[in-house]
């Protein structure tokens, strides 16, 4: 059987920059650039053997995290996936503590105990990436339940992939959230592949969003290569959650440029170069820059400055991480329990 590739993008609504001011566009742009630079550097460090462990890189999917997280505040809680760096960065995590965690150093987010797949930052409502596919979904439902108890108007958002929508925890979480009418937004990042298996081979639907109907939950599909479209779709879902109208599901059609794990990964061709090139031709950052410049909303020099500042931030953070000490082996057995 020939590789079948990702299911073609379908959108319910046309993408648009209308109604967005320069500050909003620059905000989306900065979130995406920060992810792209962080992940590109992380990938480079892994390929050169500097970083231990596994890395699931987010390059290509930046518009999803940027658009979705531009709709939240620090009080709102998110759960993330094994491909979680993008969500942390777009929620506001700092490069220094993230790189230190990737290097396994004591100044990392988990003091070197969590690694790439378990970064969390409670101060910004990032409850954690997760090494188990689908595990973050019910955890977000619990965070949404807590938000309702607290009555502070906050909500929860959970990211998951097309592959995770086949796991029982997705269905249990979706039903639980719907039946309890909890303020949670399910954001499916459909990059067309469950690890190495194309969507058409792991489910019989084109749109994961169709699954929401089974739980009595509204849903919509958006272009996951367009941060503005993602932002608009998530804004509608977030508004519903904040208004006490229960959960929603947003599916963003997107694509990862690198392999499931690492940059080159297993070097087994399960995607065609034509497919990869076609998605790269719709690169989310280039799309936003070109459209905003053409409309005269943001000056190209401002975009250039974001790139420059972000690259400098990464250089600083990598130097910081390299200089941070490794955990003391005497701490190995600590923190298993509170006592």
């Amino acid at each position: 059987m020939e590789p079948v590739g990702a299911v073609a993008t379908r959108t319910d609504r046309a993408p648009s920059v209308e109604g967005l001011d320069a500050a909003s566009l620059l905000d989306l742009h900065r979130r995406m650039v920060r992810i792209r630079v962080f992940e590109t550097e992380a990938g480079r460090l892994m390929e050169s053997g500097d970083l231990p462990g596994f890395l699931h890189l987010y390059v290509g999917q930046e518009a999803v995290a940027a658009g979705a997280l531009a709709t939240l505040t620090d009080a709102d809680q998110i759960t993330s996936t094994h491909r979680g760096h993008g969500h942390a960065v777009a929620k506001g995590a700092g490069f220094r503590k993230m790189f230190a965690e990737l290097f396994g150093r004591v100044d990392g987010y988990c003091h070197g105990r969590g690694g790439s797949m378990h970064i969390n930052d409670l101060s910004i409502g990032m409850l954690g990436a997760n090494g188990i596919v689908g595990a973050g979904l019910p955890i977000a439902v619990g965070a949404a339940f807590a938000a309702r108890y607290r009555g502070d108007g906050s909500i929860a958002m959970t990211f998951f992939g097309d592959g995770a929508s086949n796991i029982g925890a997705f269905h249990e979480a979706a039903n639980m959230a719907a039946v309890l009418q909890l303020p949670v937004v399910f954001v499916c990042e459909n990059n067309g592949y469950a690890e190495f298996t194309a969507q058409a081979r792991h489910m019989r639907l084109d749109d994961v969003a169709d699954r929401a109907a089974a739980y009595g939950m509204p849903s919509e599909v958006c272009d996951g290569m367009d941060a503005v479209a993602v932002r608009q779709a998530c804004r509608r879902a977030v508004d519903r959650a904040r208004a006490g109208e229960g959960p929603s599901l947003v599916e963003a059609k997107t694509y990862r440029y690198y392999d499931h794990q690492g940059v080159k990964g297993l070097r087994k061709p399960y995607r065609t170069q034509e497919e990869i090139d076609a998605w790269k031709a719709r690169d989310a950052i280039e799309l936003l820059e070109a459209r905003a410049a053409a409309d005269g909303v943001v000056d190209a020099a401002e975009f250039a400055r974001v790139w420059e500042e972000t690259r400098a931030d990464a250089v600083d953070a990598i130097a910081f991480a390299r200089a941070s000490p490794l955990p003391d082996p005497a701490t190995l057995t600590r923190d298993v329990y509170t006592d």
């Binding site: 409850l127 019910p138 619990g142 949404a144 339940f145 938000a147 979480a173 639980m176």
Partner: peptide, 13 residues
């Protein structure tokens, strides 16, 4: 799984 996962999110908060 949904019950225990929801409990995790509640405990985190």
């Amino acid at each position: 799984a949904g019950i225990l996962g929801t409990a995790v999110g509640l405990a985190m908060r």
